[in-house]
Design a protein around this nucleic acid. Structure first.
Length: 753
RNA sequence: GGACUUGUAGCUCAGUUGGUUAGAGCGUUGCAUUGACAUUGCAAAGGUCAGAGGUUCGAAUCCUCUCAAGUCCACCA
């Protein structure tokens, strides 16, 4: 044996040894208790980062422990198509090549992303193997596998049959840069200081940060008890605006805060969530003035028959605004307000929060768009019940409360996304029944071919429309049929795809179901869901909601949330800061075992940990310590059992101590405390086994067989944490009748009487 | 504005039904090298467990308040 442990020389070989022995497939023994972890599927386009290494390590520890305990242990790996994320990355790549998504039709774009993702998926799997993940690769699932897609569609249909799906016009958080809407979870609120503008508005003064939307105001609202405005309620005024006079009625609503601004607000239902609610309440029209590319839309004014009768000034202004980006238009409109003497004052220190795109940082535009929604309250009620019944336990301080808070306040889930990369919503609109439906071809060549379906049908055959179809906009009143196959010749399918979390929210059971009824019946519900706390709401909550609704049971009994891995100064790792630890570099330098130990040792559920190279180096030293203990053992010649009173006594004390360690570690692992268990085994191996037991043996007070036995026990206890070095040593020291450490049995407390 | 979490050695953190002298990694200081290991061993320094009060025979641990740090949530035009 070499003097120091060389991880590189072992790891690949050892992993092959396990793979060749089929060690990762669950035992088929009938009375073996099933133990299942569904791996959080990494984004298929992502190379592995330290966060992946974290969950792979923690989960692999649980998996290896249960496998050694003799459970039928399944760790099911997979990959997520990660709709928006992936399409965004791909579009960036296109941009570098001087292209855009609008250069391709729907089908071609999907195929291109598919190919791109396929290449990256294989890299990710190899990296997961390098970390030592003992997952069952033969059961690998991808969210866009045909079988998975079929199940997602069927489950959508089931939810629809249960009356939990509806289509509605709502103001959605729309990112005009990314070209898609989001759910409430994906909006990031940021504090901003924006000018607050006071505008002379007929007999009133109104305050707003968004003067550009005022052209489509539908009413003025005040609080009923406000003495300043009480007498105006119900009255209609002619108000001089930038495009001529408009008529506006004053309504009263208890939600209007008299203390804010001037106490009177303009109502713009199409562009403000609060106003949208008011609009609904008082049946005000929803009249947009901003389009989905984030530009001003004055076509309603320009195309109005009375346009030619307007003042020249107004005509020019409208033409000028039309098509202008929102921010630019706002500045210009402020100028025009000044010009017309309508600007009262500007408060430049107004602080408020705006919703921004969690991904690109662009300010989200609330825009009216018909979307599919999932009613959540019947689902969240069931989840709350299951949590209270302790059918599912959350590990990580405070996160049970956060989850419950969300469950109690959750709004209906917008599951439509206006992207191509995903599972297309199986809703079909009849061309015959919905003649006002529009299709838009977004390829440059076809950009002009848009219009009412009726006209298109005359020019093109239906098949041609389907192939090139980019987006379809059906009015909110359009009738639709939910079906996983086309209901008939004259139907067009919804072009929106599902929110990625809608499919990954079903992951624990659709994976197993896609693998066959046997797997589903044997391994569902699963035991542990292990993931980072930052996707508790996005993912874990959704899995609980959909799992309980669609399978009648909690998809997992324990949720273990690990913290985020930060650098040694506690800063978030990011490429721009240059403090990123690449797991593959670490493995090359120090070995996978050192990385694993560094990630898990002394960490607790739900708390961030700071990991620097010093810690990893320290853990590399630990693997070397194990190696050298093995060298010492290997150097001893076989000696008979304890042959004197001193050794008998020494062996007994040694055995007793080892038993205590087995007991402690078993308890810690059962309690889902891998960080503590790692610390225990580290301490006990180094400061007890090496510093005490081996020294005792040198003095002759512990017999060799007892020492060897104890060492083998330690290898087993160490194995879930540092699988490579322990298996490597095991192969050197094992008896003839022993085979692999990975499948050896977890130590039981030996009777030493 | 709400909610949650944290404050333990120079640094990074463990310490879960409250129980002798509060632990580890890294760092620091001294000594040790032909017999497993210098990626080491032995020894040492370093803590009023944020502060104050309370419960208790006993508190880092439970309760209250104060101070500090962080995270999440929230439509105020």
């Amino acid at each position: 044996m070499e003097k120091t442990y060389n991880a590189q020389a072992f790891e690949t070989r050892i992993y092959k040894l396990w793979e060749n022995a089929n060690a990762f497939t669950p035992s088929s023994e009938k009375d073996a208790k099933p133990f299942t972890i569904i791996m959080p599927p990494p984004n298929a386009n992502d190379p592995l980062h330290i966060g992946h290494a974290m969950f792979l390590t923690v989960e692999d520890i649980f998996i290896r422990y249960h496998r050694m305990k003799g459970d039928a242990t399944l760790w099911l790996p997979g990959a997520d198509h990660a709709g928006i994320e992936t399409q965004f990355v791909f579009e960036k790549k296109l941009k570098k090549e001087g292209k855009s998504r609008f250069d391709f039709d729907r089908h071609t774009l999907f195929q291109m992303i598919w190919t791109y993702v396929q290449e990256n998926k294989d890299i990710a799997v190899n990296q997961m193997k390098a970390i030592g993940a003992s997952a069952d690769w033969s059961r690998f699932c991808f969210t866009l596998d045909p079988k998975i897609v079929t199940l997602v569609l069927q489950n959508f249909m089931r939810l629809h049959e249960k009356g939990l799906i509806y289509r509605d016009l709502r103001l959605i958080n729309y990112c005009t840069k990314c070209g898609t809407g989001y759910s409430e979870l994906e909006a990031k609120h940021e504090e901003r200081i924006d000018p607050f503008i006071y505008i002379r508005y007929g007999p009133f003064t109104i305050g707003t940060v968004r003067p550009e939307t005022k052209f489509r105001d539908t009413a003025l609202a005040v609080h009923a008890h406000d003495p300043r405005y009480k007498d105006h309620i119900g009255k209609t005024y002619e108000i001089q605006g930038l495009l001529g006079p408009i008529r506006m009625t004053v309504i009263s609503d208890p939600d209007v805060d008299p203390a804010f601004g001037t106490g009177i607000m303009k109502v713009t239902p199409a562009h403000d969530p609060h106003d949208f609610e008011l609009g609904k309440r008082y049946k005000l029209p929803i009249t947009p003035i901003i389009d989905f590319s984030g530009r001003m839309d004055f076509s309603w004014y320009i195309n109005d028959p009375s346009f030619s009768t307007k003042l020249k000034k107004y005509q020019e202004r409208a033409k000028q605004y039309h098509g202008m980006p929102v921010a630019k238009a706002r500045a210009l409109i402020i100028e025009h307000l000044k010009e017309d003497g309508l600007l009262e004052k500007i408060d430049t220190s107004y602080k408020h929060t705006v919703a921004t795109c969690y991904r690109c940082g662009n300010v989200l535009e609330p825009l009216p768009l018909p979307q599919f929604f999932l009613k959540v309250s019947p689902l969240t009620k069931k989840v709350i019940h299951h949590i209270k019944e302790k059918k599912v336990r959350i590990h990580g301080p405070g996160y049970d409360k956060i989850l419950l808070h969300w469950l109690k306040n959750l709004k209906d889930w917008n599951i439509s996304r206006q992207i191509v990369w995903g599972i297309r919503i199986p809703a079909w609109y009849s061309v015959r029944d919905n003649p006002t439906m529009r299709v838009t071809f977004l390829t440059k060549e076809d950009a002009l071919i848009s219009g009412e379906i009726k006209d298109l049908l005359q020019t093109y055959s239906l098949n041609e429309i389907r192939t090139g179809l980019q987006t379809l906009s059906a009015p909110v009143s359009a009738s639709y049929v939910v079906s996983d196959t086309s209901p008939g010749e004259d139907y067009l399918q919804e072009t929106d795809t599902f929110d990625t979390w809608f499919s990954s929210g079903q992951w624990p059971f659709i994976t197993l179901q896609s693998l066959g009824i046997n797997d589903y019946e044997r391994f569902y519900p699963t035991q542990i869901m292990e993931t980072a706390y930052d996707i508790l709401i996005f993912w874990v909550m959704r899995m609980l909601m959909l799992g309980i609704e669609l399978t009648g049971t909690v998809p997992f009994s324990d949720v273990y949330l690990h913290g985020l891995v930060r650098d040694e100064k506690g800063q978030k790792m990011s490429k721009s800061k240059g403090n990123v630890i690449n797991p593959m570099d670490v493995i090359e330098k120090y070995g996978a075992d050192a990385l694993r130990m560094a990630l898990v040792m002394s960490t607790t559920a739900g708390k961030d940990s700071n990991t620097g190279e010093d810690k990893i180096r320290g853990m590399r030293n630990f693997t070397n310590k194990i190696w050298n203990a093995a060298r010492y053992i290997a150097m001893q010649s076989q000696q008979p059992t304890a042959n004197n009173q001193l050794q008998k006594k020494g062996d007994k004390i040694f055995q007793k101590h080892v038993n205590a360690i087995i007991k402690t570690m078993t308890k810690q692992l059962d309690a889902l405390r891998p960080g503590l268990a790692a610390e225990t085994v580290y301490q006990e191996f180094w400061y007890y086994f090496c510093d005490v037991a081996i020294e005792e043996h040198k003095k002759g007070t512990i017999s060799f067989p007892a020492l060897l036995n104890g060492f083998k026990t330690f290898l087993k206890l160490l194995h879930p944490f540092v699988p490579f070095v322990t298996e490597g040593i095991w192969q050197e020291l094992k008896d003839k009748n022993e085979s692999l450490l990975i499948t050896a049995s977890w130590p039981k407390i030996a009777n030493n009487t």
